[in-house]
């Protein structure tokens, strides 16, 4: 996750002035997740997507607002959001 954050840091302010900082860090526990798709379907900012095996993957970490929709609605406690201050 730390890598993902550093990757989106713009090299200079001029090149990517509107680049957002994520406000939440999302972790999916693969062996608990049943791939129901609720988190993907309802994440308001499109942070997650289902892969070919129907498992959620974080595709846009920078979009996470830390709203906790996904981790309070996951029926299998398989996703956790940690807020980034």
């Amino acid at each position: 996750m730390a890598d993902a954050i550093s990757v989106i840091q713009p090299p200079t302010v001029e090149i990517a002035p509107r680049q957002k900082k994520p406000r939440g860090e999302v972790i999916v526990f693969g062996n608990w997740c049943k791939g129901c798709g609720l988190c993907v379907e309802f994440c308001p900012t499109g942070v997650l997507a289902l892969d070919e095996a129907d498992h959620p993957v974080v595709v846009k970490p920078e979009n996470c607002t830390g709203c906790h929709w996904c981790d309070t609605h996951c029926p299998d406690m398989a996703i956790v959001v940690r807020r980034i201050e």
Partner: peptide, 17 residues
């Protein structure tokens, strides 16, 4: 874990609550 519930069943959501 994981539970016996079907993928996406609301029971687990109530459990979290």
């Amino acid at each position: 874990f994981p539970t016996i519930w079907c993928a996406g069943c609301g029971n687990g959501i109530v459990m979290g609550s």
